[in-house]
Design a protein around this nucleic acid. Sequence first.
DNA 1: CCCTTATAGTTACCTAGGTAACTATTTTGA
DNA 2: TCAAAATAGTTACCTAGGTAACTATAAGGG
Lengths: 137, 137
Amino acid sequence: MISHELFHTLHQLSRHLTNKLNEALKPLGIYSAQWAVIFTLKKRGSLTQTELCDYLFVEAPPMTRTIQRLVKQGYVKQVPGKDKREKHVQLTDEAINEYPRWEIVVNEVNQGLLNHFPEASQEELLKLQNSWLQQIL
Amino acid sequence: MISHELFHTLHQLSRHLTNKLNEALKPLGIYSAQWAVIFTLKKRGSLTQTELCDYLFVEAPPMTRTIQRLVKQGYVKQVPGKDKREKHVQLTDEAINEYPRWEIVVNEVNQGLLNHFPEASQEELLKLQNSWLQQIL
DNA sequence: CCCTTATAGTTACCTAGGTAACTATTTTGA
DNA sequence: TCAAAATAGTTACCTAGGTAACTATAAGGG
């Protein structure tokens, strides 16, 4: 009956990592959920909200809220598409300007969280997580 | 730069497992956070709220809320200790009666989530998670 | 063609968990 | 001893993410 401990530890890890990221992002005025959207848009370019939801495995309502906050802060704009139901979300110039600064902070946190955890273990962990996710999704 | 994917996958896994657990617990009228407290109290007996927080790595305010809901549902009671600041939390007879029924449901979910994921992988994953947690806590 | 169904997004409201500020006790140290 | 500091718990308010119910637009089938 290892399952309880497995789930518990996973949950703790996830919370701890999110907390650390939010703590580091605080002086920048953005939150972890916003960062996830920004990071995705930087990598993939313009996406509809549904595409963002699919990629980040998040339901539509929280995505709406996160995007609305980003719009209000001027980091993201919603461009209506040919299909009038869709909103194509993209980074503003301001966000693109700020991005390198944000990336440095995030990379520092990530490295701080990983630098005593061997790279081989990281890869093994990622492999196990992906394999588990595939099976239950 | 594996870190983004590692964190992202971990986060997804954690959310997915919690969602599945909540879905299964819904007909029983309890939520995953409540189950975590019940499970801990069953294993450890009477604990103060601070001890529960420490064990579950959760801050005091969410613990207060979870316990207040359990008290309202009659599954938990708060017994004042010698130190009048403390509240010793323990399961009621009703909770002890219901426990086996809850345990069956939870074990079924857990098994459903794990039955295509080899036991050796589970153990390896737990080992990696624990080792990482130790280093960043 | 038009009515039905499906899809994109929003709103309202729920749990989960975080910080800051507070109260009430207990512990400590000058 | 007793004032200051620490601790246990609560309250208020924030983000994160979930479901249900809704609106508006697009697609399909008779």
